[in-house]
Write a protein that binds this DNA or RNA. Structure first.
Lengths: 214, 214
DNA sequence: GACACCATACCAACTGGTCGGTATTTATTT
DNA sequence: AAATAAATACCGACCAGTTGGTATGGTGTC
């Protein structure tokens, strides 16, 4: 009788990638040893270097894996269903706040963590991390542009800059959460971000549209 | 003839601390070797371990050194001279934006960098980093409270949370700057923070007070 | 038996930290 | 003020543990 594992457990490559996300998010890039990742994945270095030719290679693949995972999460998130673009934007913020659950390594950002410590030593990896953040921010730009069109905007800023600012607040909230050892401050900061959006568009969402007679 | 160095060059302990700030800000905590710090300071490991009993001990002292340095910079900054508290708050933001000059390691945050990567592995160091950020945020709270009193506030948030949010934006701006390899995005994000403050208090500073007849 | 996958043993390079010794400054005594 | 004792500051070789990566061999599948 041979054990059938291929169905029930992830293939080893994916297990290593998932393990990398977990370990790096809690210990940082440099402090993460490949044996840490192997242990987390329940494998050994033999397997590791069969699938990846170096630690950097693994991390690069893990960034792509992170993109796939988070891309799926946000693509399927409920906030897209709302009719009004400002409501969608605010619901995105609410969703980000709702994700602040569990332990810190469970909700902090993989690419943000790497970026902070490796931007000088591993520029190629950080370039991918930057693209990851930029791409995620871009998914908000259409809604922001729609809001600017409908609710008006003073033209002193662009949809791109606001989308990136939202990411900056979230990244900064993670830093503060780590610094103070809890998610509460991060939630407060995201509340301030939400307030900024409502003030910026002088309303609290679809109600304003109704007032405008739409 | 003996060379007189004691006047012209800093004492070695301070040189090591300054070197630590510089190297850690560009390579991160874990990737920084004590020999890197020694080389930057122009000293050897013998001297290093004479002044500090371990790498962690040095970093702890460097956090205190960072507090002293930045504390001095902000205490003597010109924005304190303004009469109106909202003007002071906005001038602080402008000042933070003006500090975004030179290369990334020149203006990014020492304690924020450490926090991001070491919050699980070196909790005692990160605790000090957290206190450093909190203490700096606290220097803004009096002005914020004064603004809330004069300009009114909706009571859904505290002066403390706004002060910390401002730090979160700044920390996040650093992450984005590292991720995209330039200070421009950081400046944009600080602009958004400034806009938030003006919207929050429904004015652009002392002009509003004049409108209110003060 | 060819091949993908994985485990174990192993290596060379690196790193934090130690240690014995030397130069320099400061305190003490004469 | 000279002589001497005692700290203090600093160096560079060295050590022990760690780490990324390799070499080799085993196991199950086609």
């Amino acid at each position: 009788m041979v054990m059938e594992m291929t169905d029930t457990q992830q293939d080893s490559r994916t297990r290593l990638l998932d393990a990398a996300l977990k370990v790096v998010r809690s210990k940082g890039y440099t402090a993460t040893r490949v044996e840490d990742i192997c242990a987390e994945a329940g494998l050994t270095k033999g397997s590791f270097f069969h699938h990846f030719k170096s630690k950097d290679d693994l991390v690069l693949a893990a960034v792509a894996h992170w993109d796939t995972m988070t891309g799926g999460v946000f693509a399927q998130a409920p906030y897209h269903d709302l009719a009004d673009p400002l409501d969608r934007l605010l619901a995105y913020v609410d969703y980000r706040k709702a994700l602040l659950a569990g332990d810190l390594p469970d909700f902090t950002c993989f690419v943000g963590t790497i970026t902070q410590e490796a931007y000088q030593t591993r520029p190629d990896i950080v370039a991918d991390c930057g693209r990851s953040i930029t791409n995620h921010a871009r998914t908000l730009e259409d809604d922001i542009r729609a809001v600017m069109r409908i609710y008006g905007a003073d033209g002193e800023w662009t949809a791109e800059s606001l989308a990136l600012h939202m990411q900056a607040v979230i990244q900064g909230a993670f830093v503060l959460a780590k610094a103070k050892g809890g998610a509460a401050i991060a939630a407060d900061s995201i509340d301030h971000l939400r307030r900024y959006l409502t003030l910026l568009f002088g309303s609290t969402g679809s109600q304003a549209l109704e007032q405008k007679g739409q």
